[in-house]
């Protein structure tokens, strides 16, 4: 399943980059995230609770960041597993400095899902994942605003 989209942040590219690369921030942003820990250079471990239609489950997984070119781009690899199935995804993030304290984020990725989330949830998975990403990015932007206000 392919995912992709764009989002414009109200902040300079370096600030956005710093936020995205902070696990503590990520944990508060992505809906349902229960924990995120750094376990190594560019490796994180965490748990996230996902609701997809009738299916509710906790996924435990790892996130790897590779091909990192701060503050421009990176590749994210996610592997998660839970009682309701598994998912495996790989995605690329590009940050484009639009000037005027605006940053355009472009993301593309591909996700494989299996188990109950695939067999029963696939029809809703696309919508749910888009919503989760949108909510997460909105929250990040909010934090950006708050920090901007303080700074």
């Amino acid at each position: 399943m392919k995912l992709g989209g764009e989002y414009t942040f109200d902040g300079p590219r370096e600030d956005v980059w710093e936020l995205v690369r902070d696990p503590a921030v990520l944990a508060t942003c992505l809906p349902g995230t229960q924990s995120v820990q750094k376990i190594g250079d560019n490796q994180y471990e965490g748990e996230i609770k996902v609701h997809i239609g009738p299916i509710v489950g906790v996924f435990a997984g790892r996130l790897f960041v590779t091909n990192e070119v701060p503050p421009e781009s990176c590749t994210l690899t996610v592997e998660g597993k839970g009682k309701v199935g598994f998912l495996k995804g790989i995605g690329n993030i590009d940050m484009i400095d639009c000037g005027d304290r605006k940053t355009l984020m472009k993301y593309t990725g591909e996700v494989q899902i299996g188990g109950k989330i695939a067999s029963v949830g696939q029809r809703l998975f696309d919508t749910v994942s888009k919503n989760m990403i949108k909510q997460g990015l909105d929250k990040l932007n909010e934090i950006l605003h708050e920090r901007g206000a303080i700074g």
């Binding site: 494989q112 899902i113 299996g114 188990g115 695939a118 067999s119 029963v120 696939q122 029809r123």
Partner: peptide
């Protein structure tokens, strides 16, 4: 079935 062998419509909703 998807390319990984996951059945994507395993319910009478789909």
């Amino acid at each position: 079935f998807d390319e990984n062998g996951q059945l994507l419509n395993a319910s009478f909703a789909d």
